[in-house]
Amino acid sequence: MERARGGWVYIITNRRDGVLYTGVTGDIARRAFEHRTGAYPGFTRRYGLKLLVWMERYEDIRDAIRREKAIKHWPRAWKVRLIHDTNPDWRDLYEDLA
């Protein structure tokens, strides 16, 4: 069986300790840019979620999808802790993608 291409799980927000959105993508730079520019209508554009504050890479997109589904069911406090553990200043990681 051929291995599926890689993927990313990410969390974006509008500000430190603000609204959180967890997503999954095969192209984190493109997806983060789409969020920043409000390319698509919906939850993230409505709440101005543009800051990429957490991301995790997977070799197989199916693993990324499983992780995203798990995180979406977590309590908010767990997601905040996940961000604080790797990005305590809630710095926008978009700049790191270039």
Rank of each mutant, 00 (worst) to 15 (best):
R3A: 08
R3N: 08
A4R: 14
A4M: 09
G6T: 03
G6C: 00
G7I: 04
G7A: 03
W8I: 05
V9L: 14
V9H: 07
V9E: 11
V9Q: 05
V9M: 13
V9I: 06
Y10G: 10
T13N: 01
R15F: 02
R15M: 05
R16D: 09
G18P: 00
V19Q: 01
L20S: 01
Y21A: 01
Y21M: 00
T22R: 08
G23I: 02
G23L: 03
G23A: 06
G23R: 02
V24D: 08
T25S: 01
T25C: 02
G26A: 07
G26H: 10
D27M: 04
D27E: 05
D27F: 03
A29Y: 06
A29L: 04
R30H: 07
R30E: 12
R31D: 06
A32R: 07
A32N: 08
F33L: 15
E34Q: 15
E34L: 08
H35Q: 01
R36D: 12
R36E: 10
T37C: 11
G38C: 06
A39S: 04
A39T: 14
A39D: 10
P41E: 02
G42K: 06
G42F: 09
T44H: 15
T44E: 07
R45I: 09
R45C: 13
R46S: 10
Y47E: 00
G48A: 01
G48I: 04
L49Y: 05
K50Q: 04
K50T: 05
L52T: 02
L52Y: 11
V53E: 04
V53C: 03
M55Y: 07
M55D: 13
E56Y: 02
R57A: 11
Y58P: 08
E59C: 09
D60Y: 13
D60Q: 11
I61K: 09
D63W: 07
D63R: 15
A64W: 09
A64Y: 04
A64V: 06
I65Y: 10
I65R: 14
E68I: 01
K69E: 15
A70Q: 07
A70K: 12
A70G: 14
A70W: 14
K72I: 06
K72E: 07
K72P: 00
K72T: 02
H73E: 07
H73G: 13
H73M: 10
H73I: 11
R76S: 03
R76Q: 04
W78P: 15
W78L: 13
W78D: 12
W78I: 11
V80F: 10
V80A: 02
R81Y: 12
R81T: 08
L82K: 04
I83S: 07
H84R: 06
H84F: 04
D85S: 13
N87D: 08
P88S: 08
P88C: 06
D89I: 03
R91F: 06
R91E: 15
R91K: 15
D92R: 00
L93M: 05
Y94G: 12
Y94Q: 12
E95R: 14
D96Y: 02
L97Y: 04
L97I: 03
L97V: 02
